[in-house]
């Protein structure tokens, strides 16, 4: 579904991605783990077109997307929940959800999907008329994920959904991520520093170091991998 082939992405003169190659098939949860500054978020930003790669190819369902602007990539069915959540602070919860469905025209189905995300996160239903900026961190993360669900993406990119949240909320959010994948066969590409958690719900994983993918394996094998254990799982 998504094929990233040898991409090099730069921030000014700094080469953040030094030839990243990876692949995601339909229906999978694939995780990308690695330490701070390894290039995980940059990989997502390259896929989305916010920081397009200088060289290399990215294909999504056979379409080359490495030269497309972000809104075109979004219209193909890729949606990102960026690190830091990026809720529209002065729009209400309902309006934020509405923005997620910006590209959709099937009003009735959109309304049904709003009900669906309120079922997933009942607290959002209570906060419907509150502006996004007034929500707590956990609620904002729920809203960010809900907003992405509203876009009905074929591929959902999640960047550090556990960052700065209490363990309880993190568990809730990871359960939902798993559920989204189960319910609608949405393909998920999950970037996470908390490798323990990520590998628990993922089918496959990649390990990144210094702008390069160093290990690629099934989630089960990665959990047992001595190197991964030592560096990322803290065992």
């Amino acid at each position: 579904m998504l094929i990233i082939k040898d991409i090099h992405t730069f921030y000014g003169h700094i080469e953040a991605l030094k030839g990243v190659t990876l692949e995601i098939s339909e229906g999978e949860i694939v995780t990308l783990v690695g330490s701070n500054g390894a290039g995980k978020s940059t990989t997502l930003m390259s896929v989305c077109g916010i920081s397009p790669p200088r060289t290399g190819d990215i294909h999504f369902m056979g379409i080359p997307i490495h030269n497309l602007p972000p809104h075109k990539i979004a219209s193909l069915g890729i949606c990102q929940v960026p690190e830091g959540r990026h809720i529209f602070p002065h729009l209400t919860v309902a309006e934020n959800l509405d923005m997620g469905a910006f590209l959709r025209n099937d009003k009735r189905q959109v309304r049904r999907d709003v009900e669906y995300v309120f079922e997933l996160f009942p607290v959002l239903a209570k906060r419907k008329k509150q502006s996004g900026g007034t929500l707590s961190g956990g609620e904002q993360q729920m809203l960010a994920i809900s907003r992405a669900i509203m876009a009905k993406p074929k591929l959902l990119l999640l960047d550090e959904p556990s960052l700065g949240l209490s363990p309880l909320v993190v568990r809730q959010i990871f359960n939902i991520i798993f559920k989204i994948n189960e319910d609608s066969r949405t393909t998920i590409f999950l970037v996470e520093q908390n490798a323990n958690l990520a590998l628990k719900i993922a089918h496959r994983g990649y390990v990144m170091e210094n702008g390069k993918v160093t290990i690629a394996d099934s989630a089960g094998n990665l959990v047992r991998n001595e190197e991964v254990k030592k560096a990322y799982l803290g065992i």
């Binding site: 602070p89 729009l91 910006f102």
Partner: peptide, 23 residues
């Protein structure tokens, strides 16, 4: 629709483009 796109863009341009808005 364009008005909503304007409000979203004014609050978070990167996120607006990720939602499919042509900034």
């Amino acid at each position: 629709k364009i008005g909503k796109a304007m409000r979203a863009t004014s609050q978070d341009r990167v996120m607006a483009s990720l939602m499919g808005i042509d900034v």
